[in-house]
Amino acid sequence: MAVTVATGAVKTKREGTFGYLLPALLLIAFFFIVPVLMLLVRSVLEPEPGLQNYAVLLGSTTYLRVFLNTFMVAGVVTLVSIVIGYPVAWLLAIMPERWSRIVLAIIILSMWTNLLARTYAWMVLLQRTGVVNKTLMGLGLIDQPLALVNNLVGVTIGMTYIMLPFVILPLMGVIRAIDPAILRAAALCGAGRLQCFWRVLLPLSLPGIAAGALMVFVMSLGYFVTPALLGGTANMMLAELVAQFVQSLVNWGMGGAAALVLLVVTLALYAVQLRYFNPARGT
């Protein structure tokens, strides 16, 4: 008898929890899962049933270059974001609270500023007669203006800037959680600054690096605005390709296939992160 009662109680509790999740689940189901499934269906049904959309997408060098561009830009943006973001996150973590609040506010304010405005600002800065080129030429470092927009260099610069907060914020949280006494212990064990960093600080902040890197990489893979404005037509990225299929060519089959390839890659990366960098697993 007692067992039955206990099971019943557990069941009720679970149903209760599920109830709270229901609105969010419905929202995701209707506005995410259903459209994705529809895309999947259209990618294998249009213009006629079969996998020919995927064959075209993965078989043509033009499209493969788009994939290559996308992964390369996302990879470089991720790498540069971490290299630039790590010292910032570390400083934020060790700064006195009143200073770190100000710096954090600046970082977050930049995130709240309109994305288009920020991207156009980069166009102005990076163009042939922009501030960057003029300064470099004025200093005599270059004779000819550098081509900084309408190519992947511009895309990388613009996207790195936009992605930085997504690296800094999780990293700062992880670094803040590291007990400074552990670093003191490392110092007394004989580790200099560099060894403290390589052997203790970096391994301990790895979950933050992984979280930030995944976020930036995945967001970069599907990014549209910045590549569309700062990139040239010659160096298309995946999101632009999807937009072109759907908007200009009205080819939902190819658009869906491209979007799904992107989704599969993203999910695979997420799975890798869960497997190797899940803090709950204690690694």
Binding site: D179, A181, I182, R199, V200
Partner: peptide, 8 residues
Amino acid sequence: FQRYTLFP
């Protein structure tokens, strides 16, 4: 140290 400072 007072706190646990093993490298986790």
